[in-house]
């Protein structure tokens, strides 16, 4: 019996091991350089106005866990996400919204139509703050405690994502 004949089998074993490892990774997990870092400094106005809405200092002063959600009226997944954010609001989560590269009129229309789950909304019309936060695309959601970014999620959050990815981190912070 020649050992050469075992080569295909061996290659396959290596391959299936790699696939097994791969199965436990999440390809949509995008690492953030800012995890466990303090939030970048910013000061943003309310949507469509001059007066200040909130700044990095306001977020740092918050006592409990807060969520920061980047969204836009032009982003289709944001429409999908919105009903669940409303549920989160009912469950007592404090969500700060930052409308990303969006026009004031469109943002307001979006919020009045889809509901406003946010404690406060600020406008990042030029997307400068988004760049500092390392936003890949909207929607993106951050978990923040004491001004430190604890977790970042790219893409819409729905019930399942929230239970699987957010809850463990929120629980670990609470302890």
């Amino acid at each position: 019996m020649s050992l050469n004949r075992f080569i295909p089998l061996m290659i396959f074993c290596v391959l299936s091991f790699a696939l097994y490892v791969g199965l436990n990774l999440n390809p949509s997990d995008i690492p953030s350089a800012l995890i466990n870092d303090s939030i970048p400094e910013f000061d943003l106005p309310v949507v469509g106005g001059e007066e200040a809405s909130f700044s990095s200092v306001d977020l740092t002063k918050e006592e409990g866990i807060i969520l920061v959600n980047f969204f836009a009226s032009w982003c289709v997944p944001c429409y999908v996400e919105q009903p669940f954010l409303m549920k989160l609001k009912e469950r007592g989560y404090k969500i700060y919204g930052i409308s990303y590269k969006d026009k004031a009129r469109d943002t307001n229309k979006f919020l009045s139509k889809e509901g406003n789950p946010y404690y406060k909304v600020a406008a990042d019309e030029k997307g400068r703050v988004g760049i500092d936060w390392g936003v890949y695309g909207v929607p993106e959601t951050y978990i923040i405690k004491d001004g430190i970014i604890r977790y970042k999620h790219a893409g819409p959050i729905l019930e399942m994502e929230f239970e699987d990815n957010f809850m463990p981190i929120i629980e670990s912070i609470d302890q």
């Binding site: 019996m1 004949r5 075992f6 295909p8 089998l9 396959f12 074993c13 299936s16 696939l19 097994y20 199965l23």
Partner: peptide, 19 residues
């Protein structure tokens, strides 16, 4: 993956032994 492992791995093993 388990199914793949049995079907492909099994047939390749058979190949190694019987070819």
């Amino acid at each position: 993956l388990m199914f793949l492992f049995i079907v492909i791995g099994g047939s390749l093993l058979l190949f190694a032994l019987r070819a």
